[in-house]
Amino acid sequence: SPTVSMAELEHLAQNISKSHVETCQYLREELQQLSWQAFLQDEVDGYQSKPREVMWQLCAIKITEAIQYVVEFAKRIDGFMELCQNDQIVLLKAGSLEVVFVRMCRAFDTQNNTVYFDGKYAGPDVFKALGCDDLITSVFDFAKSMCSLHLSEDEIALFSAFVLLSADRTWLQEKLQVEKLQQKTQLALQHVLQKNQREDGILSKLRCKVSALRSLCARHSENLSAFRAVYPDIVRSHFPPLYKELFG
Protein backbone atom coordinates (compact mmCIF):
# COMPACT_ATOMS: atom_id res chain seq x y z
CA SER A 1 0.00 0.00 0.00
CA PRO A 2 1.47 3.40 -0.93
CA THR A 3 2.21 5.96 1.74
CA VAL A 4 -0.04 8.90 1.10
CA SER A 5 -0.39 11.98 3.24
CA MET A 6 -3.76 13.11 4.54
CA ALA A 7 -3.41 16.27 2.47
CA GLU A 8 -2.83 14.22 -0.67
CA LEU A 9 -5.91 12.08 0.01
CA GLU A 10 -7.99 15.17 0.66
CA HIS A 11 -6.74 16.68 -2.60
CA LEU A 12 -7.50 13.52 -4.60
CA ALA A 13 -10.97 13.24 -3.06
CA GLN A 14 -11.67 16.84 -4.01
CA ASN A 15 -10.33 16.36 -7.52
CA ILE A 16 -12.50 13.28 -8.09
CA SER A 17 -15.62 14.88 -6.60
CA LYS A 18 -15.14 17.97 -8.74
CA SER A 19 -14.58 15.85 -11.86
CA HIS A 20 -17.77 13.93 -11.10
CA VAL A 21 -19.87 17.08 -10.64
CA GLU A 22 -18.47 18.61 -13.83
CA THR A 23 -19.26 15.53 -15.91
CA CYS A 24 -22.38 14.02 -14.39
CA GLN A 25 -24.76 14.67 -17.35
CA TYR A 26 -27.67 15.57 -15.03
CA LEU A 27 -27.59 17.37 -11.71
CA ARG A 28 -29.21 15.51 -8.86
CA GLU A 29 -31.59 18.40 -8.16
CA GLU A 30 -32.67 18.36 -11.82
CA LEU A 31 -33.37 14.64 -11.61
CA GLN A 32 -35.29 14.97 -8.38
CA GLN A 33 -37.44 17.72 -9.85
CA LEU A 34 -38.24 15.48 -12.81
CA SER A 35 -39.03 12.40 -10.76
CA TRP A 36 -42.80 12.97 -10.75
CA GLN A 37 -42.74 12.82 -14.55
CA ALA A 38 -43.27 9.17 -15.32
CA PHE A 39 -44.24 7.92 -18.76
CA LEU A 40 -47.99 7.70 -19.31
CA GLN A 41 -49.50 4.36 -20.28
CA ASP A 42 -49.86 5.28 -23.95
CA GLU A 43 -46.21 6.34 -24.01
CA VAL A 44 -45.23 3.02 -22.43
CA ASP A 45 -47.33 1.26 -25.10
CA GLY A 46 -45.43 3.27 -27.71
CA TYR A 47 -42.07 1.98 -26.46
CA GLN A 48 -43.38 -1.56 -26.16
CA SER A 49 -44.64 -1.60 -29.72
CA LYS A 50 -41.36 -0.38 -31.20
CA PRO A 51 -39.56 -3.01 -33.27
CA ARG A 52 -36.88 -4.75 -31.22
CA GLU A 53 -34.04 -3.29 -33.31
CA VAL A 54 -35.37 0.28 -33.00
CA MET A 55 -35.49 0.02 -29.20
CA TRP A 56 -31.99 -1.49 -29.12
CA GLN A 57 -30.71 1.36 -31.25
CA LEU A 58 -32.35 3.93 -28.95
CA CYS A 59 -30.80 2.34 -25.86
CA ALA A 60 -27.40 2.06 -27.55
CA ILE A 61 -27.57 5.80 -28.27
CA LYS A 62 -28.50 6.64 -24.67
CA ILE A 63 -25.76 4.42 -23.26
CA THR A 64 -23.23 5.97 -25.63
CA GLU A 65 -24.22 9.50 -24.57
CA ALA A 66 -23.80 8.56 -20.92
CA ILE A 67 -20.43 6.93 -21.65
CA GLN A 68 -19.10 10.09 -23.29
CA TYR A 69 -19.57 11.85 -19.94
CA VAL A 70 -17.73 9.02 -18.21
CA VAL A 71 -14.78 9.41 -20.60
CA GLU A 72 -14.68 13.08 -19.67
CA PHE A 73 -14.83 12.11 -15.97
CA ALA A 74 -11.87 9.75 -16.40
CA LYS A 75 -9.80 12.39 -18.17
CA ARG A 76 -10.18 14.77 -15.25
CA ILE A 77 -9.08 12.28 -12.60
CA ASP A 78 -5.55 13.13 -11.44
CA GLY A 79 -3.18 10.53 -12.84
CA PHE A 80 -5.51 8.98 -15.44
CA MET A 81 -4.03 10.85 -18.40
CA GLU A 82 -0.53 9.96 -17.17
CA LEU A 83 -1.27 6.28 -17.76
CA CYS A 84 -0.18 4.92 -21.13
CA GLN A 85 -2.82 5.20 -23.83
CA ASN A 86 -3.31 1.46 -24.06
CA ASP A 87 -4.26 1.36 -20.40
CA GLN A 88 -6.56 4.37 -20.64
CA ILE A 89 -8.44 2.53 -23.36
CA VAL A 90 -8.44 -0.81 -21.54
CA LEU A 91 -9.87 0.85 -18.40
CA LEU A 92 -12.56 2.71 -20.32
CA LYS A 93 -13.52 -0.32 -22.41
CA ALA A 94 -13.97 -2.42 -19.33
CA GLY A 95 -15.23 0.18 -16.90
CA SER A 96 -17.21 2.92 -18.60
CA LEU A 97 -20.49 1.00 -18.66
CA GLU A 98 -19.94 -0.02 -15.04
CA VAL A 99 -19.67 3.66 -14.12
CA VAL A 100 -22.86 4.38 -16.10
CA PHE A 101 -24.61 1.75 -13.94
CA VAL A 102 -23.21 3.34 -10.78
CA ARG A 103 -24.32 6.78 -11.92
CA MET A 104 -27.75 5.38 -12.75
CA CYS A 105 -28.62 5.25 -9.05
CA ARG A 106 -28.73 9.06 -9.13
CA ALA A 107 -31.43 8.90 -11.78
CA PHE A 108 -33.41 6.13 -10.10
CA ASP A 109 -36.65 6.55 -8.22
CA THR A 110 -36.92 3.73 -5.68
CA GLN A 111 -40.52 4.45 -4.76
CA ASN A 112 -41.80 3.88 -8.28
CA ASN A 113 -39.00 1.58 -9.52
CA THR A 114 -38.34 3.94 -12.43
CA VAL A 115 -35.25 5.40 -14.05
CA TYR A 116 -34.76 8.62 -16.00
CA PHE A 117 -34.72 7.66 -19.68
CA ASP A 118 -35.46 9.60 -22.87
CA GLY A 119 -36.94 12.60 -21.05
CA LYS A 120 -39.10 10.97 -18.36
CA TYR A 121 -39.04 8.29 -15.67
CA ALA A 122 -39.42 4.76 -17.04
CA GLY A 123 -40.26 1.46 -15.37
CA PRO A 124 -38.89 -1.89 -16.57
CA ASP A 125 -41.95 -2.37 -18.80
CA VAL A 126 -40.74 0.49 -21.05
CA PHE A 127 -37.82 -1.74 -22.10
CA LYS A 128 -39.94 -4.80 -22.95
CA ALA A 129 -39.28 -4.54 -26.71
CA LEU A 130 -35.54 -5.14 -26.17
CA GLY A 131 -36.34 -8.76 -25.48
CA CYS A 132 -33.96 -9.04 -22.54
CA ASP A 133 -36.20 -8.96 -19.48
CA ASP A 134 -33.62 -10.68 -17.25
CA LEU A 135 -30.98 -8.06 -17.95
CA ILE A 136 -33.44 -5.22 -17.39
CA THR A 137 -34.62 -6.75 -14.11
CA SER A 138 -31.00 -7.10 -12.97
CA VAL A 139 -30.20 -3.49 -13.90
CA PHE A 140 -33.22 -2.22 -11.96
CA ASP A 141 -32.40 -4.46 -8.98
CA PHE A 142 -28.86 -3.18 -9.01
CA ALA A 143 -29.98 0.47 -9.07
CA LYS A 144 -32.36 -0.25 -6.21
CA SER A 145 -29.66 -1.86 -4.07
CA MET A 146 -27.23 0.98 -4.84
CA CYS A 147 -29.89 3.49 -3.78
CA SER A 148 -30.38 1.63 -0.51
CA LEU A 149 -26.79 2.61 0.40
CA HIS A 150 -27.82 6.29 0.24
CA LEU A 151 -24.46 7.37 -1.14
CA SER A 152 -23.68 11.07 -1.20
CA GLU A 153 -22.38 12.68 -4.40
CA ASP A 154 -18.76 12.58 -3.20
CA GLU A 155 -19.13 8.90 -2.27
CA ILE A 156 -20.58 8.11 -5.71
CA ALA A 157 -17.71 10.05 -7.31
CA LEU A 158 -15.01 8.18 -5.38
CA PHE A 159 -16.66 4.81 -5.89
CA SER A 160 -16.99 5.49 -9.65
CA ALA A 161 -13.29 6.34 -9.85
CA PHE A 162 -12.42 3.22 -7.86
CA VAL A 163 -14.43 1.07 -10.31
CA LEU A 164 -12.89 2.76 -13.33
CA LEU A 165 -9.33 2.34 -12.07
CA SER A 166 -9.62 -1.42 -11.54
CA ALA A 167 -6.11 -2.82 -11.76
CA ASP A 168 -7.27 -6.36 -12.51
CA ARG A 169 -8.51 -5.69 -16.05
CA THR A 170 -7.03 -7.92 -18.74
CA TRP A 171 -4.57 -6.39 -21.24
CA LEU A 172 -3.19 -3.67 -18.96
CA GLN A 173 0.43 -2.87 -19.89
CA GLU A 174 1.44 -0.91 -16.80
CA LYS A 175 -0.56 -2.76 -14.19
CA LEU A 176 1.54 -1.39 -11.35
CA GLN A 177 0.73 2.23 -12.23
CA VAL A 178 -2.99 1.47 -12.32
CA GLU A 179 -2.71 -0.45 -9.05
CA LYS A 180 -1.09 2.55 -7.35
CA LEU A 181 -3.78 4.85 -8.64
CA GLN A 182 -6.55 2.50 -7.55
CA GLN A 183 -5.05 2.08 -4.09
CA LYS A 184 -4.85 5.84 -3.65
CA THR A 185 -8.44 6.15 -4.82
CA GLN A 186 -9.51 3.49 -2.34
CA LEU A 187 -7.77 5.36 0.47
CA ALA A 188 -9.48 8.57 -0.64
CA LEU A 189 -12.82 6.72 -0.69
CA GLN A 190 -12.19 5.39 2.82
CA HIS A 191 -11.22 8.88 3.93
CA VAL A 192 -14.49 10.32 2.57
CA LEU A 193 -16.54 7.51 4.13
CA GLN A 194 -14.92 8.18 7.49
CA LYS A 195 -15.40 11.91 7.15
CA ASN A 196 -19.07 11.32 6.32
CA GLN A 197 -19.30 9.06 9.38
CA ARG A 198 -20.55 6.09 7.40
CA GLU A 199 -20.96 2.75 9.15
CA ASP A 200 -18.03 0.29 9.08
CA GLY A 201 -19.72 -2.22 6.77
CA ILE A 202 -20.21 0.21 3.90
CA LEU A 203 -16.88 -0.55 2.19
CA SER A 204 -17.58 -4.27 2.06
CA LYS A 205 -21.05 -3.53 0.69
CA LEU A 206 -19.41 -1.46 -2.03
CA ARG A 207 -17.01 -4.32 -2.79
CA CYS A 208 -20.02 -6.58 -3.43
CA LYS A 209 -21.27 -3.98 -5.89
CA VAL A 210 -18.04 -4.33 -7.86
CA SER A 211 -18.81 -7.97 -8.63
CA ALA A 212 -22.45 -7.17 -9.33
CA LEU A 213 -21.30 -4.57 -11.87
CA ARG A 214 -19.07 -7.10 -13.61
CA SER A 215 -21.90 -9.54 -13.92
CA LEU A 216 -24.25 -6.84 -15.28
CA CYS A 217 -21.73 -5.89 -17.95
CA ALA A 218 -21.14 -9.53 -18.87
CA ARG A 219 -24.89 -9.93 -19.29
CA HIS A 220 -25.05 -6.81 -21.43
CA SER A 221 -22.38 -8.32 -23.70
CA GLU A 222 -24.20 -11.63 -23.92
CA ASN A 223 -27.44 -9.90 -24.84
CA LEU A 224 -25.68 -7.75 -27.39
CA SER A 225 -24.09 -10.81 -29.00
CA ALA A 226 -27.47 -12.52 -29.19
CA PHE A 227 -29.00 -9.40 -30.74
CA ARG A 228 -26.13 -8.98 -33.19
CA ALA A 229 -26.47 -12.57 -34.32
CA VAL A 230 -30.01 -11.79 -35.49
CA TYR A 231 -29.51 -8.18 -36.66
CA PRO A 232 -25.87 -7.85 -37.77
CA ASP A 233 -26.67 -5.10 -40.31
CA ILE A 234 -28.58 -2.98 -37.81
CA VAL A 235 -25.61 -3.00 -35.44
CA ARG A 236 -23.17 -2.35 -38.28
CA SER A 237 -25.01 0.55 -39.85
CA HIS A 238 -27.22 2.06 -37.15
CA PHE A 239 -25.44 1.72 -33.81
CA PRO A 240 -23.20 4.55 -32.55
CA PRO A 241 -19.57 3.96 -33.59
CA LEU A 242 -18.34 4.48 -30.00
CA TYR A 243 -20.73 1.80 -28.72
CA LYS A 244 -19.37 -0.62 -31.31
CA GLU A 245 -15.79 0.26 -30.38
CA LEU A 246 -16.46 -0.43 -26.74
CA PHE A 247 -18.59 -3.54 -27.01
CA GLY A 248 -17.80 -4.89 -30.47
Binding site: E72, K75, P241, E245
Partner: peptide
Protein backbone atom coordinates in the same frame (compact mmCIF):
# COMPACT_ATOMS: atom_id res chain seq x y z
CA UNK B 1 -5.08 2.25 -32.72
CA UNK B 2 -7.49 2.11 -35.67
CA UNK B 3 -9.73 -0.20 -33.65
CA UNK B 4 -10.33 2.48 -31.02
CA UNK B 5 -10.32 5.55 -33.20
CA UNK B 6 -13.13 7.39 -31.43
CA UNK B 7 -11.88 6.61 -27.94
CA UNK B 8 -8.46 7.89 -28.98
CA UNK B 9 -10.05 11.04 -30.29
CA UNK B 10 -12.11 11.58 -27.14
CA UNK B 11 -9.04 11.06 -24.99
CA UNK B 12 -6.97 13.47 -27.04
CA UNK B 13 -9.54 16.28 -27.17
CA UNK B 14 -8.68 18.81 -24.51
CA UNK B 15 -11.10 18.81 -21.60
CA UNK B 16 -13.63 21.58 -22.00
Amino acid sequence: KEKHKILHQLLQNSTS
